[in-house]
Simulated scan of single mutants.
Amino acid sequence: MSGAGEVDFTIADNDIGTFTLARTPATLAEDGAATASFALTLDKSNATGTAVTVPYTITGTAANGVDYSVQGTSPMTFPEGIFSQNINIATIGDTGPEPNETIILTLGNPSNATKFSYTQMPVAQRTVTIIDDDCVAGDTPPTINARATGVCSPPTTSVNLNTYVVGAAAGAPTGSSLRWSTTANPTTAAALLPNANVTANGTYHAVYWVDETCFTGSNPVTITFNTPPSAGTLTAPANPLCNNTSTDFGVNSLSLDTVISGQTAGAWTVGSVPGSTTPTIGAGNIVSFEGQAVGDYVFTYTTTGAVTPCVDDIKSVTIEVDDCDKCAAKVAPSLDTSVQRTFCDDITTSLNDYIVGNAQPVPC
């Protein structure tokens, strides 16, 4: 008793301060600008005269300082008059595709467990998930290699565009595929070719593609199908040409243009000849065999203007040349001047006696 008629009573405090945790939001975009907050709230003012602290740890698959940063330190402190403390999470953007990652907050016991309490929430309710926003196709378009883009058709009637990309289809980033379009930087699946095989000239654009939300820019390759030149069909004359001066015995000249058909632009040249003299190919590709040796003459037609990888076509024709004058008496006979040519009366010799050798020519 303090004095006459006075009684002192001690009021025992039986109030418990309760902490609750709220998380906003549950997911974050991995763009370097998104933030999340864990708010720890005390339902009553701390009147104990001593600040109460609540420790915490952050775990999960995301790495602090790599995938996110934390604003706030452990433990959180609640002096009198402070009812709420926040832990702020900010994402750190990157460009590398990766799985979604988690940030898990775990609270420890309050420093004054007699007067304050906290019931740990389920893990799912104290987890923030960072959603990866990087396209698995990456940011780099396919690289076109140095392979020649001109093809010769025939024999090549189609090409696989993938062979013009470094690494081909197997070089596409995991989870993406190498696709082609006739449109630069395609953004819709409808703009993609059904496959990499093409049969027509054109500029085709390579892109690494996942879907209409994930793709790279494109790089072009221009394919040109070149038609190879043709030496056509060569047909030798049915009868030999003559080497005689007179055409009375037969034709002694020939236009080479008459033995060829279906050819593209080109030129004639003389190949092998039977004698020491080579005939000349004149205007209109006409060749005269007058005075040439008997035998076979080879003439070659070579196309011009082939575009790589096509090559010029070469074909040859053999022209037979003969002496068409079959008369044996083509040379005047030699006279024998030793035979008597002066007579007094009767001539007793035959004219054939004046011929050296056989006086009987072979009939023409």
Rank of each mutant, 00 (worst) to 15 (best):
Ser2Glu: 09
Phe9Leu: 15
Thr10Leu: 12
Ile11Glu: 05
Asp13Ile: 09
Phe19Glu: 03
Thr20Val: 12
Thr35Arg: 10
Ala36Lys: 04
Thr41Tyr: 03
Leu42Ile: 08
Leu42Glu: 01
Asn46Gln: 08
Ala47Ile: 15
Thr50His: 13
Ala51Glu: 08
Ala51Leu: 06
Thr53Glu: 06
Val54Asp: 00
Pro55Trp: 08
Ile58Gly: 00
Gly60Met: 02
Thr61Cys: 08
Thr61Ala: 12
Val70Ile: 13
Gln71Glu: 15
Gly72Leu: 04
Thr73His: 08
Pro75Met: 01
Phe78Asn: 02
Glu80Pro: 11
Ile82Trp: 03
Ile87Val: 10
Thr95His: 12
Thr102Ala: 09
Ile104Met: 07
Leu107Gln: 00
Gly108Asp: 06
Gly108Cys: 05
Pro110Tyr: 04
Ser111Lys: 09
Thr114Arg: 14
Phe116His: 00
Phe116Gln: 02
Phe116Tyr: 11
Tyr118Ser: 07
Gln120Val: 13
Val136Ile: 11
Ala137Met: 04
Thr140Lys: 13
Pro142Val: 06
Ala146Lys: 12
Ala148Trp: 15
Thr157Asn: 12
Val159Ser: 00
Asn160Phe: 14
Asn160Cys: 15
Leu161Val: 11
Val166Phe: 15
Pro173His: 04
Ser176Asn: 01
Ser176Ile: 05
Ala184Gln: 08
Thr188Cys: 14
Ala191Arg: 02
Leu192Lys: 02
Asn195Gln: 15
Ala196Lys: 04
Ala200Leu: 12
Thr203Ala: 11
His205Ser: 06
Val210Arg: 03
Val221Asn: 02
Pro229Leu: 14
Leu234Gly: 02
Ala236Pro: 04
Ala236Asn: 08
Asn239Met: 12
Thr247Ala: 15
Phe249Ala: 02
Gly250Ile: 05
Val251Ile: 04
Leu254Pro: 00
Ser255Arg: 02
Leu256Ala: 07
Ser261Phe: 13
Gln263His: 07
Gly266Thr: 04
Val270Phe: 01
Gly271Asp: 01
Ser272Lys: 09
Val273Asp: 00
Thr277Ala: 10
Thr280Met: 12
Val287Glu: 00
Ser288Cys: 01
Glu290Trp: 06
Tyr297Asp: 00
Thr308Asn: 15
Cys310Val: 02
Thr318His: 03
Asp325Trp: 05
Leu335Cys: 08
Ser338Ala: 15
Val339Phe: 10
Phe343Tyr: 15
Thr349Ala: 13
Asn352Val: 14
Asp353His: 07
Asn358Phe: 11
Val362His: 09
Pro363Asp: 15
